[in-house]
Each structure stands twice: as structure tokens, then as C-alpha cells.
Simulated scan of single mutants.
Amino acid sequence: MVEVHGRNVTFYPPPKARYLVGDFTDWEKRPIPLPGPITLEFPPGAYIEYAFLDEQKEPFPDPDNPHRAQNPWWSYPRAIELPGFDPTPPPNPTRPVEVQRHRLHSKAFGALRRYYVYNPPEPARATLYVHDGVAYYRTAKLAEVAQALLELGQIHPIRIVFLEPEDRRSEYWFNPRYETFVLEEAVPAVEAAYGPTPEKALLGASLGGLVSAWLAWRHPGVFPKLATQSACLTASPAGGDSYTDPEWLTQQYQQSPTLPLRFYCETGQLEWLLAPNRRFAAMLADKGYPHLYTERPSGHNWMTWRQGLAPALRYLFGR
């Protein structure tokens, strides 16, 4: 059970609960022991996802909170909305959105890969390649957001390619095979089926944000625009721990000449990646990159990311 008093939330542990976890604890990385009720302070108007751990540190939901989080991966997180929480819902299109499903035999991975394509009703001015495509398609409803903004005259028509990984951690972690798959297999296949566009861009959340920023750094002439959401910037090719590695990619951008790139970046204020994303945004400002950086009073979740879709599309593809 929880009680909300302004910015303070008191968590009352059920009988078998031994720890409290959420975005504010890096989930299982820094669980908070629960000898009894505990009160925590959050930003004004925050959206909070949380769960409990038992004695074996197995997660389970709060039995007294029926408000399930918008989480496509786990069923146990529950949500709390503090007073003043006022998310801006993305616009909805007036017409049905058509998405075509494709399969591609990848030589880079030696396996079939799947991807979806949203093609706008007008000739596309850009193609946006999206990592973790199924979640962005089904949970975030990115194609619907893009078509609604197009109907409102707020963006140019864009094609969206939803790429789906098999093992997102290994593929997105500075993996040259994934780089080959995107540049030498996915892009040519899409352009052969739908035609090329004047621009190509990248979008991803968490590790998907990391690989977007990495691919753009390596190929700025191919992907001049990108959007990152809660990018996992605590990662290094020589490391392997996204919580303790140095911020390697930020260092590479800092040491490189300013590239012809345009960034939309955002993160939640309740997640362990807040400070690394702030430092990345400061680096972009110092080096003169055109960019828009936003923070939201929420965490590493789809409530945060879905609110950022329309602003990202407007900034990168606005009329």
C-alpha cells in the first residue's frame, strides 16, 4: 500500500516484502531495505513505477495497488501519479495507419530478422530507423503519432522502419555486426522496396539510444539526425556493465570535431542515467551541436518515452 502527501510517498510493505525497487533504485541494483514503512520524496508531478522484492529478491507487485505500469517487459511494476502529474498525450490520427511486415535473411547474423515499415500517404522526406521496433510500434504507437502530426501539418512526411533485435544487449553494445546489418542489409532492403529518401535518421531508448548515438557518430553522413531517450551512455566497448562503465561515447564525441548532426535527447529525473544524459547534453552545448534536451519527472519507462515522441518528431522533421 502507498500513501501520497504532496511530493512524499509512504510505502507500506506487504508481509513478504523485504525490499523496495523502482527506477529510483536502478531497479535491482540498489534495492531499499524495508524493516517497515518508508517515506521518499520525488519531483513535483512525478510518475513513479515500483515493485517489492521478497527474501530471495524475487520481484512481485504491490497487492494493494491495481494501477499497472505501462511496461512491455515486466508484469509486476505498479504506478503512482503524484499531484500535478499532467502528461501530454500524443495526438491520434484520423485515418487508419498501415504498417507492412517484412523478413530479411541477415548474413551478418546468419538468421532471419523481422522489421515493420510505416510509409506515409505522401512521399517521404526522411526515413527514421527505430531500434526496439516492436515496442515502439505496439507500446508507444509511434506510427500513429507520426501520421497524426503529418495530418496536423506539423512535420514533413517520414517513413518509419521498426527494427527488432534478437538479443538487444549484445547487438546494441557497439557491435560491428549490428552496424553491418543496419547499413548493408536493412537500409538497402528498405530502399529497394520503398525507394530512397533525402534523409535518414535514428531513434532509440536506453541501449537503443546508445546504439543510435554510436551509429550517428560513426556515420554522420548517413544519419544526420537522431533522437535518444534515456540513452544508456554508461557503456564502453571494453567494459560490459551499463552501471559502472565510463561514459565512453560522450568522450568520443568530446574529442572528435563537431559533426554535421542534429540531436533530440531526453531522460527521466528518476533514473540512474540522468547525470550521464545531462553531461552528454552539456557536451553537445559546449561543442555547438544543434540539439534539444528535455527532462521529465518520471523514470526509465514508456510513460517517459511516449511523451517525447511528438516533440522529437517536430524538432527533427518539423515543417
Results as ranks from 00 to 15, higher is better:
116 Y>D: 11
130 V>A: 04
239 G>E: 10
165 P>W: 06
98 E>Y: 10
177 R>L: 12
104 L>Y: 12
83 P>E: 08
72 P>H: 07
81 E>C: 09
102 H>D: 03
276 P>R: 04
153 G>Y: 09
37 P>W: 08
309 L>W: 00
11 F>P: 01
179 E>S: 13
89 P>K: 04
219 H>A: 11
186 A>I: 14
237 P>Y: 11
258 T>K: 14
55 E>R: 15
317 F>I: 04
107 K>R: 15
241 D>E: 10
306 R>F: 00
298 S>W: 00
30 R>C: 05
69 A>Y: 08
206 S>T: 05
55 E>F: 13
170 S>Y: 07
7 R>W: 05
139 T>F: 07
189 A>I: 07
78 R>T: 10
252 Q>D: 08
131 H>W: 00
58 E>G: 14
136 Y>E: 05
317 F>P: 00
64 D>A: 15
71 N>Y: 04
251 Q>R: 14
189 A>W: 10
163 L>W: 10
81 E>Q: 09
307 Q>P: 00
24 F>K: 03
145 V>M: 01
56 Q>S: 14
212 S>Y: 00
41 E>C: 13
54 D>R: 09
315 Y>A: 00
319 R>Q: 12
102 H>Y: 05
130 V>C: 04
124 A>L: 05
259 L>Q: 15
309 L>R: 02
189 A>V: 08
170 S>Q: 14
132 D>R: 01
151 E>C: 11
293 Y>K: 01
256 S>D: 11
55 E>N: 13
259 L>G: 06
231 A>I: 01
131 H>M: 06
155 I>E: 06
302 W>V: 02
180 T>F: 12
284 L>V: 04
64 D>K: 12
295 E>W: 04
284 L>C: 04
314 R>Y: 01
209 G>V: 03
37 P>L: 07
276 P>Y: 00
12 Y>K: 07
155 I>M: 12
36 G>L: 07
164 E>I: 14
286 D>P: 02
246 P>W: 05
18 R>Y: 08
254 Q>E: 14
242 S>M: 10
26 D>W: 01
30 R>I: 03
45 G>P: 01
205 A>M: 12
124 A>D: 05
10 T>N: 06
18 R>E: 15
48 I>R: 02
1 M>H: 14
273 L>T: 02
94 T>P: 03
121 P>R: 07
183 L>F: 13
265 C>K: 02
315 Y>L: 02
202 L>M: 09
23 D>K: 01
18 R>M: 12
71 N>P: 06
265 C>R: 00
57 K>W: 04
94 T>V: 06
119 N>P: 02
304 T>F: 03
244 T>M: 06
106 S>K: 09
263 F>Y: 15
170 S>G: 09
97 V>E: 10
135 A>C: 06
304 T>K: 02
307 Q>G: 01
47 Y>W: 12
287 K>I: 00
226 L>F: 13
152 L>C: 05
38 I>P: 03
258 T>V: 15
316 L>M: 03
167 D>W: 09
74 W>E: 13
150 L>Y: 05
107 K>H: 14
312 A>P: 01
73 W>N: 11
88 T>S: 11
152 L>Y: 07
18 R>Q: 14
130 V>P: 02
